[in-house]
Write a protein that binds this DNA or RNA. Sequence first.
DNA 1: TCCAAAACAAGAGCACTGCTCTCTGTGGAA
DNA 2: TTCCACAGAGAGCAGTGCTCTTGTTTTGGA
Lengths: 248, 248
Amino acid sequence: MPQNESVEDRPVLGVRARARVELTRAIVETARRHLAQDGPANLSLRAVARELGMVSSAVYRYVPSRDDLLTLLIIEAYDALGAAAEKAEAKVPRTDLDARFVAVGRAVRAWAIEHPHEYALIYGSPVPGYAAPQDTIAPATRVPTILIGILADAVAAGVYDPAAAPGVPAAVRRSLGPVRAAIPDVVPDDLVVRGLMAWSTLLGLVSMEQFGQFHNVLAEAASQREAFFTEALRRTSAVTTRTPAARP
Amino acid sequence: MPQNESVEDRPVLGVRARARVELTRAIVETARRHLAQDGPANLSLRAVARELGMVSSAVYRYVPSRDDLLTLLIIEAYDALGAAAEKAEAKVPRTDLDARFVAVGRAVRAWAIEHPHEYALIYGSPVPGYAAPQDTIAPATRVPTILIGILADAVAAGVYDPAAAPGVPAAVRRSLGPVRAAIPDVVPDDLVVRGLMAWSTLLGLVSMEQFGQFHNVLAEAASQREAFFTEALRRTSAVTTRTPAARP
DNA sequence: TCCAAAACAAGAGCACTGCTCTCTGTGGAA
DNA sequence: TTCCACAGAGAGCAGTGCTCTTGTTTTGGA
């Protein structure tokens, strides 16, 4: 009689299958370390194999190609960033919408600074073939999902009054088709546009800093960079979730 | 007696020197075509040499390394983008600040769509060694210079009233050190911050679209993408150059 | 005018990459 | 116990950036 065997474990993995998932994990983990150190361009399947004491051709039993390995790392990066952002946002009182947005923004930036190559991998120029594989789109939505929650709460708390929301041009409305499916209907189009702009500003700020566009523009000291970034986030939040002023 | 010889040509280049500049140009031009077609990662010095009918080692007489070749292409890209933006802005009446900003933004986006690999090269993750060489910083300022002009004109035209400008926190003020040197003193810190945010939003929008972050977010049709983008630019301009509302 | 020095092109070669193919041994299910 | 799919090793292909050596051509100064 099998003891302590949960339903999930029912189809017990054989020793070989077990070794397989373990080795796959080891490959991805080693690759992640190499990526963090040398960047996506210098990620070598052969080097990973070497470090694991196997020959390069053996790795191909576990990973179809170098690009697929990068795809796995992209997924891991999206997940790590999403987790960091969620954790930061959870520490802030849900009623303070500005603080929540700022917390998410700062978490994204902090993660990017700590993992520059991983950040470049997901938000920089796409390295592998152009089309991002399907598997990456789900984890990629974690941070945007947080932001959508803030938008919805702004409406729920009455900070943003949908009744006072201006309409958006028909062509713009049509452009929002796909994202509308992921956002509650109570959030008006105007606020969706604001949210997308806020998200673009956030990623724009982090990418520009990360990719060196702020050289000779902002001071290099970490504390000053942080001050500017936080100020920009605060301003962005302020023009995003507030009820729009009536246009005279 | 030499005829029709301008002063600039006075130190006549020898046949060899002439051939040298010509061949260097040919190398860069061929590389530019390869870059546009296959992307920075696939730019091969050997392939360029092959197309020019020479052996790979010969190219090293003209270009120190592959990374230096990429640097030359970066400079060319910055210049081409800057020229496109300047041309677009020149077509708009100088008094219409919003139209000028929108024109610049649309020009940047249009150029990015037309030259995706070049755009990725300058605003995506840095491919060569991390430090951007000195030669690239000058051409990189062409587009920001246009935006600074719009900020200054907003003050000059009284659209933005410096007297009503709120101060910025001391730490933020300090962070602006380098960029302040490039902006007229009549533009207050508050407007500088707004300008940097607008620039970040603009690049964020273009990069996200270019790097696939708007998949499953915005409709794919070009006309709808354009409508959203223009709307976002208009809104960005509106919150940038207007005199800030008095905070109650 | 002549000659050494500099510039040039070519080729071989090194160390590396991604990836494929073939071969051998072994683990695990039937 | 048998058999086969799978794992690993090794060789090999085509390509890369870059260096070094070997002849050749051009150039500028004596």
